[in-house]
């Protein structure tokens, strides 16, 4: 039964997930080509100076990609459920409501993590050929908050979609903007090295709230 639920989620989000992964790869290809051009034009010494002495981050173009992916995946997954209150069909399935909602959210989280992990693998595989371990470590700490922002955007957007009233949706959206700010406080390389685990808690904390909004829908709360 759980695999049937996951199949339904896959049917809804398949083209978006494949598209997001492809766009991400295209973005990385663009960044690699740009870097390759810089290697050739200005030389590796200059690039080293830019990274180490001027604290510039070479993958800055990735910054908003996870955010957009998380936001759009939640829309692709939950807007079809809320149009014509189609979620009633899901809630009528012979499973507990908790299992139904958390399977849907779990699927989204897993899909997003898969896209993000594959992207990070591509970035890191490229980087280990050109940069020492210290710089790669700094890169990971710089990139992680941006990817966590993607997970946070997913958790909040799914909560907003599942919420039955506009007043609360607007409140949730304001909370989302405030929480996302925490992931974009600084572009300075490895600025988040000490707090990245705390930032990581934000999406995990917000994700279950979607279930409470479904419970509000269940008792008939509406505008």
């Amino acid at each position: 039964m759980t695999s049937a639920l996951l199949f339904k989620e896959w049917k809804k989000t398949k083209w978006f997930a494949i598209g997001a992964f492809a766009v991400g790869l295209a973005l990385l290809t663009y960044i690699f080509l740009k870097l390759g051009r810089s290697f050739r034009m200005v030389g590796l010494e200059h690039l080293w100076d830019v990274i180490v002495n001027r604290d510039q981050f070479l993958f800055r173009d990735v910054k908003y990609f996870p955010l957009a992916t998380g936001f759009c995946l939640a829309l692709a997954q939950f807007v079809p459920e809320m149009i014509q209150k189609r979620i009633k069909l899901s809630l009528h399935l012979p499973l507990s409501n908790r299992k139904i909602v958390f399977s849907m959210l779990g699927f989204g989280l897993l899909a997003l993590l898969s896209i993000f992990v594959l992207h990070l693998i591509v970035i890191l595989t490229f980087s280990v050929f050109y940069f020492p371990m210290e710089i790669i470590e700094s890169m990971v700490y710089t990139l992680l908050p941006w990817y966590v922002a993607g997970l946070t955007a997913y958790a909040f957007t799914s909560w907003i979609c599942l919420e039955p009233t506009w007043k609360r949706r607007i409140f949730n959206a304001l909370l989302m903007f405030a929480s996302l700010q925490l992931c974009f406080l600084s572009d300075f390389p490895a600025a988040y090295s000490l707090v990245v685990s705390v930032v990581l808690l934000i999406p995990l904390y917000v994700l279950p709230f979607g279930y409470f909004s479904v419970q509000r829908f269940k008792v008939g709360i509406q505008d």
Partner: peptide, 18 residues
């Protein structure tokens, strides 16, 4: 109302699991 993103054979397979 049904899951309009599925076709008739997919939706049959989906519900049969439950």
């Amino acid at each position: 109302i049904q899951y309009s993103f599925m076709n008739i054979s997919e939706i049959e397979k989906f519900y049969s699991a439950f």
